[in-house]
Structures are given as structure tokens and as C-alpha cells.
């Protein structure tokens, strides 16, 4: 290898990545070549400079405390992941069952002729909404088909 080739191999030499024969050749060349020696010294200075930066980082670092911090962050994140999010609570799917119950209650009211008593309509609707989920189950019952059944069940809800 000539001077230029050896010069370009200086990084690998400095990093210990050169194969033994190339390494021996470069070591021999370094004895007689001032330019290559200076280039290598510049790399060594840079290395010391970077090492000193890492050494400063270790001062005052508490691995025990840090580890505890990581583990509590992991626990916190896992706990949050298990809780339902506000987004899920507010999504349309979350409201599907109560809304369907409300609609079913309104239909039942219409069947019962409850609309005649307009004064108590709002109060009735509210009461039906509160019992919405129960009404859904009740409407699914195959036996609850006659108006009489509906009437008695609706009365029981009030």
C-alpha cells in the first residue's frame, strides 16, 4: 500500500478494525511518515475528547433510582392501557344501547297511547330512559307480544 492508501486506512487502524497484515504494514509506515502520524494523533485527541464527555455523564447518575423510575413508568402505562379511555366512553358505540333503549321506550309509549297525556310526556320519557336497558331485555322477550303485557310491564317500570 502507498501513503494515500495507508492514510485512508487510518480510521480502521485507530478503531482496531484492520486485519493483522495491513496493521503491521501501517505500523511500519508510521515510523517514517510524519503526515500519517499527525493524522493518527488528531484521531486520538478526538477520541480522548469524546471519552471525557461520556465520563462526565456518569458523575451523579444513580442507576438504582433510574431503574425504579423506569419500572414505575411501565406500571403506570400498563394501568392506563387497561382503563377505558374517555374517547371510548364518548364514542357512538358506547351510547348505542341507551339510545336504542330510548327509541324502544318511545315506540312502547306510542303503542300505549301515552302521547295523549302530553303534560307528563317529558317525565315519562325520562323514566323510560332510566329503565332503558331493562326495556331492551323486556322487548326481546318472545312472550311479551300483547298490548296488555306491554302495558303492565311499562307500569311496573314507573
Amino acid at each position: 500500500m502507498n501513503h494515500d492508501e495507508l492514510m485512508s486506512a487510518l480510521d480502521e487502524f485507530h478503531d482496531g478494525e484492520l486485519d493483522p497484515s495491513a496493521r503491521a504494514e501501517l505500523e511500519f509506515h508510521l515510523r517514517s511518515c510524519q503526515d500519517c502520524r499527525e493524522a493518527l494523533e488528531a484521531r486520538q485527541r478526538a477520541a480522548e475528547f469524546l471519552l471525557s464527555s461520556a465520563a462526565a455523564a456518569y458523575e451523579g447518575f444513580d442507576a438504582e433510582r433510574f431503574s425504579r423510575g423506569v419500572m414505575s413508568r411501565i406500571s403506570g402505562e400498563e394501568l392506563r392501557a387497561r382503563l377505558p379511555t374517555w374517547r371510548a366512553l364518548l364514542s357512538w358505540r358506547g351510547w348505542l344501547v341507551p339510545a336504542a333503549s330510548f327509541a324502544a321506550a318511545a315506540v312502547a309509549m306510542w303503542f300505549l297511547g301515552g302521547f295523549a297525556d302530553r303534560g307528563s310526556l317529558a317525565a315519562d320519557m325520562l323514566a323510560e330512559q332510566r329503565g332503558g336497558v331493562v326495556m331492551m331485555d323486556w322487548l326481546d322477550e318472545p312472550t311479551a307480544t300483547s298490548v296488555g303485557d306491554l302495558e303492565s310491564s311499562a307500569l311496573a317500570l314507573r
Partner: peptide, 22 residues
């Protein structure tokens, strides 16, 4: 195993912290 992971964190955190600080 959280204890095992906590130990891994203790062992590797000084170097990882040094990298992040740089």
C-alpha cells in the same frame, strides 16, 4: 419478570444515559 428487567435497566442505564446526554 419485572425484577429481572429492573436489573437489566440498572446494568445498562449508565451507558444509555451517557449516550442520551451526549
Amino acid at each position: 419478570d419485572r425484577d429481572a428487567y429492573a436489573e437489566l435497566v440498572r446494568r445498562h442505564s449508565p451507558r444509555i444515559f451517557a449516550l442520551c446526554l451526549s
